[in-house]
Simulated scan of single mutants.
Amino acid sequence: MSDQKTRQADGAPKIKKTTAEWMEQLTPEQFYVTRQSGTERPFTGPYWDNQLIGRYDCVCCGAPLFMSDTKFDAGCGWPSFFESVHPEAIRELDDHSHGMFRTEIRCNSCDAHLGHVFPDGPRPTGLRYCMNGHAMNFVHGGRKPADSNSGD
Rank of each mutant, 00 (worst) to 15 (best):
D69V: 02
C58E: 15
P42F: 00
F118G: 09
F66N: 05
D73H: 02
D57E: 15
G38S: 06
A12C: 10
S68H: 05
K144C: 12
W22P: 15
S148N: 12
Q36A: 03
C130A: 01
I15D: 13
G121M: 01
D152L: 12
M23S: 12
R41T: 08
N137Q: 10
C60R: 06
V85D: 09
G77L: 10
W22N: 07
E83P: 05
M100D: 15
C58H: 14
D3L: 13
F101N: 08
Q8A: 14
T125K: 09
D147S: 12
M23H: 10
S148F: 05
P87K: 06
F138V: 02
T103H: 09
N137R: 10
R143E: 15
I90T: 14
C61L: 08
A146V: 15
T70W: 02
D94N: 11
K71L: 03
M131W: 05
M67F: 04
P119V: 06
G115E: 06
G11W: 01
S2D: 15
C58N: 10
G115N: 04
N108W: 11
A135W: 00
V85N: 04
G151H: 05
T18Y: 11
P28L: 02
M136H: 01
R143L: 10
E21R: 00
L65Y: 10
G45H: 03
P13K: 00
T27D: 07
P145E: 04
F82E: 14
A20S: 11
D57C: 13
G11N: 05
L26N: 05
T19W: 09
A146M: 13
C58I: 01
S109P: 12
P79G: 03
R55V: 15
R7G: 07
F72D: 13
H134I: 12
H113M: 12
I105T: 08
H96W: 00
H113C: 13
P28W: 13
W22C: 07
D152P: 00
Q30G: 04
